[in-house]
Write a protein that binds this DNA or RNA. Structure first.
Lengths: 139, 139
DNA sequence: ATAATCCCGAGTAAAAGACTAGGGTATTCT
DNA sequence: AGAATACCCTAGTCTTTTACTCGGGATTAT
């Protein structure tokens, strides 16, 4: 019941890009060094971030990545969903691949998972990268 | 980022006991049959539920398990915490084994995990087994 | 041309998850 | 007393997921 390193590292990397939003693209090597992460591992994460159109890539020398949208328009949920796949506490409320609950007799626990997911979504969908930067700046 | 089968099965089993709170102890075999679960696997879960004092066991013929407290005094969080170990999205906010965040430069993502955990705890700590039964009865 | 980058498919080692096996112990019913 | 019922406990195993590494190819600035 934990966010994996994909989500953790990915969010940290996205915050670096958020800080550099008005500058040149940032190469992964630089992010890796700043955040003490494996460059090769980051590449995998960024492949997903790119296909989900959260970042734009620039190839070749002087290349790197930039956010596709301003930091205020990217939520934590966007990032985690792209990297973790799903953020629901239970498959039956994950949406996406709507695999029905196979308990005919009305799964009584489902409403708990729905409440839990709603509470999580509330935070994930309202917190943006800009919010995090603003919060960090105050300290 | 999912609740495991431990939490899922355990909660379902606890709901059976909640329904039978005023009756005789319920043997695991019966719960296993009703919920289509492995009896042996349930035994493992109930060991944890017992050490966390959520259920009381009665050995021998006519034995089984009963809730240690009324259904209105056992929350979903109690059950899941007993079975899943921790319910935080990130180790650094899990409490318990307080392993400090090793980012000296003030981990800016931490506040997200704290908000997320708070939102989850709100649901987990306020929803009781009695609430779930009441909800299920309405349908 | 060359160096700096992103791009991509495999492969792998470790950990976690989801159980099963098989014995022991306490209690009750007959 | 003895059989049956049930909890109790330690191991072990199989599968899936996680967290990476490896090695090469494509693209672009200088």
């Amino acid at each position: 019941m934990l966010i994996s390193t994909r989500g953790e590292y990915g969010l940290r990397a996205m915050l670096v890009l958020a800080e550099e939003f008005n500058a040149d693209p940032v190469p992964l090597r630089q992010i890796a060094q700043m955040e003490h992460l494996s460059e090769q591992y980051l590449e995998h994460l960024f492949r997903d971030l790119r296909t989900k159109e959260l970042v734009t890539s620039f190839r070749g020398a002087k290349g790197g990545y930039k956010l596709s949208r301003p930091p205020a328009e990217i939520t934590v949920g966007d990032v985690l969903w792209a990297l973790e796949g799903s953020l629901a506490p239970m498959r039956c409320v994950a949406g996406e691949t709507d695999e029905a609950c196979q308990h005919k007799d009305g799964c009584s626990t489902r409403f708990v998972w729905e409440k839990l997911k709603a509470a999580m979504d509330e935070v994930l969908d309202t917190t943006t990268l800009a919010d995090i930067l603003a919060r960090a700046a105050k300290e």
